[in-house]
Amino acid sequence: MATQTTKLSAHARGVIDAALEKYPPEQKRSAVLAALHEAQHDNKGFLTEELMDAVADYLEMPRIAVYEVASFYSMFETKPVGRHSISICTNVSCMLRGSDEIVEHVEQSLGIKIGESTEDGRIYLKCEEECLAACCAAPMMMVDHVYHENLTPQKVDEILAKLK
């Protein structure tokens, strides 16, 4: 099997190497989360089979073991998604504070359902499974790793409008 490591950018490899420093040399696989994060970041927010193979080969682990990790954690996308990632919390506190309406509003204004991306590739409406730990300001959503709290439909519109 030809190795795929060249599919990782020099920058990504640098970041992975830095992560590897933290672990004993025979425990390379410990860096798999860091490596996948970087590979995903480098690739506009999603992983491809090639990239996962590249990470596997780079860390000398079976490819299937990397697929397992990437498909297990919800922070990894294994299919192409939109540039901006939106996660609307629908866990208990947010639900009690009206997250369902927020979801409905976003879905309607973007014309997509949770789990889908807009056709122009601008926005990905991620399915968030867990509480995002901002209950005191519910309802909330996370946009590209930034928290937006005490949401109202108007506020959501403003945030969406700013996403290019």
């Binding site: 079976p62 299937i64 073991a65 697929y67 397992e68 498909s71 297990f72 954690y73 919800s74």
Partner: peptide, 25 residues
């Protein structure tokens, strides 16, 4: 696969209710 065949081809991908055994690709 891992322990006897020495060739890890099958794995458990996905999580919880979505977990599946397979080769992924």
């Amino acid at each position: 696969g891992e322990e006897i065949a020495g060739l890890r081809e099958l794995g458990a991908t996905g999580r919880g209710e979505n977990m599946e055994i397979g080769t992924y690709v």
